[in-house]
Design a protein around this nucleic acid. Structure first.
Lengths: 241, 241
DNA sequence: TTCCAGCATGGAGCGCTGTTCCAGTACTGG
DNA sequence: CCAGTACTGGAACAGCGCTCCATGCTGGAA
């Protein structure tokens, strides 16, 4: 459904799926998740709903395409790193996603929703592939590749999903200190009997660095994979069941 | 806003926040995420929108409350296990969530959305606390509790979010074999140049067991935490950067 | 050059949603 | 018994995703 012959010039400037997706991303960036409306889209593209629906099946597909476009750019910006350092590359890919969500806050919710609605959609698969290649380069045996990669991807998606909203609310930048203060304060008012642990670590919330913590989590998973599935790691004892 | 004096009997059966949340959960269970409508809710409760809005601020709060109710039941069903086996308890809590999502498929999307929209809302905090208590019992030093617990929670939320839709689509049960077949087939049609890894592990998709893989991921994180933050684990070398 | 099939467009409008408003009812303290 | 508050539910509103369809535009055949 995409046999497009060359087109010199059309009415104003030929409408295309790509132009629609680009406009969608811009609207999402500008006004947050609620900002993407077919009304707003028609206005921005100076057209009508019918024209858009000719190129895109429905809003869900449009959101998928928007997320896919941003994610594709995020996980692909490897400047041909010298091979041999897969852990570093995995961190780089993950941080690419982390930064993409920082630039496009709506991506967090979108990623999370796509993960649970169509678990093996194009976006997830893209990330899975990018991470998986590096996991294989790590030396993980073939039989464990799927499990190891899945674990990494799950952690990454869970973490980036949360950390996104740490800096923005409804598309507006929020002072990070204020935000963490609010969280800390809320946690300090929790019932000490029900939430002893949360109250105990409340101070660490204010001090922690998102990126550092994100990378620390990746290192946990990588260490686990190394210890449990790499010959050199077999000496380590897994936690007793 | 809840000074409720004793109430003998009202019109039919006093409307209350709890009754509304229960009805919401039932609607979600029965008809999926799209099934929760204020129209449907008013019909089921034989009332009007105004009555519901007196007890609940908006739909978002209602969804939060519904998710919170289900999650609270899921993470709290510890039958006073004998202490001393924190890893097993962590797996139990995580599996509790896993099963809750299997029973209430809408919870996956809801959890994911709440994670990214209000990252430290009541649901997340509840899980964080439940896991955190066990991480502390593991012997992780105080300074690393927040990082370690966050990593675990992020992995768990990422994983359960995805595995939910593995068994159902739009609230209907889907044969697992068929579903995985569809995924495998789709993956086999990917471009070999762009997706060498995904195509290489396509067979493992069909064979893998969700719960096993979920637990394997938890073990990766637990092993990583043990190796990097527990004295006994310091002998292990983390993956080279 | 002329004509036409059909790709592509955009405006009107449908059914549905979350939400608000408010007049009215049930209940309670004085 | 009554005044006042707590609560109810019906009507209505703005906005949403989406469909329908008459119309315009365009590349190829004649």
């Amino acid at each position: 459904m995409a046999t497009r012959t060359r087109r010199s010039q059309r009415r104003t400037e030929a409408l295309s799926r790509q132009r629609i997706v680009e406009a969608a991303v811009q609207l999402l960036d500008a006004a947050g998740e609620g900002g993407l409306t077919f009304r707003a889209l028609t206005e921005r593209l100076a057209t009508g709903p019918g024209a858009i629906y000719w190129h895109v099946a429905n809003k869900s597909e449009l959101l998928d395409a928007a997320a896919d476009a941003v994610v594709a750019a995020a996980v692909a910006l490897k400047p041909a790193e010298p091979p041999g350092a897969p852990p570093g590359e995995i961190r780089a890919v993950a941080l690419g996603l982390f930064d993409a969500i920082d630039e496009h806050p709506w991506l967090a919710t979108q990623l999370a929703m796509q993960l649970s609605r169509s678990p093996w959609g194009s976006v997830t698969t893209r990330i899975f592939e990018s991470i998986g290649q590096r996991v294989r380069a790590l030396g993980v045996p073939d039989g464990n590749l799927f499990t190891a990669t899945s674990a990494l991807v799950h952690y990454i998606l869970g973490a980036v999903g949360q950390n996104a909203a740490n800096t923005r609310v409804d598309g507006l930048h929020v002072d990070r200190g204020e935000f963490l203060d609010a969280v800390s304060t809320a946690w300090e008012e929790l019932d000490p009997d029900d939430y002893p642990f949360t109250r105990a670590v409340v101070d660490q919330v204010r001090e922690h660095d998102d990126r550092e913590q994100f990378l620390a989590g990746i290192d946990f998973v990588l260490t686990g994979i190394t210890a449990l599935h790499l010959p050199s790691g077999q000496a380590c004892t897994p936690p007793a069941a």
